[in-house]
């Protein structure tokens, strides 16, 4: 191990991970998924921009080329349907009244 001769400098103070940041957000999760993703459509999508653009990181590519989506910690922003280039893959709506994200310091 060549790097052992000269230990790496201490890393700068790390930014909190996205999971840490998401843990600060209050979600009153409703029973009904307000966004659904048709993963059959996603299999034909090569770029999958939703995976990187979603600020809550709710879209995960699966091994079979599809996309796994989790509605529970959704900001309800709308980025996913705007970047989705496969028409109809994402059906987007708001959660039931009173449910979903609760911003306190927005």
């Amino acid at each position: 191990m060549s790097s052992a001769d000269r230990p790496r400098p201490l890393p700068p103070a790390e930014e909190p991970s996205l999971a840490d940041r998401m843990a600060t957000v209050d979600f009153d999760v409703g029973a009904r998924p307000h966004i659904t993703v048709d993963t059959r459509v996603c299999r034909s999508c090569t770029t999958k921009p939703c995976v990187t653009a979603c600020p809550a990181d709710l879209f995960s590519p699966t091994a079979d080329g599809g996309v796994l989506f989790n509605y529970e910690h959704c900001f309800e922003c709308g980025t996913c349907y705007l970047v989705c280039n496969e028409a109809g893959a994402i059906s987007w709506g708001y959660p039931d009244g009173g449910r979903g994200v609760v911003f306190r310091k927005g």
Binding site: P12, E15, M22, T24, V25, F103
Partner: peptide, 22 residues
């Protein structure tokens, strides 16, 4: 947050809420 012109303003702070909106 890491930019040298901005980082000094934020040093030692704790994230209280993360948010996104269009």
């Amino acid at each position: 947050k890491r930019h040298p012109a901005i980082a000094p303003y934020l040093r030692g702070g704790t994230v209280k809420e993360y948010a996104a909106h269009l």
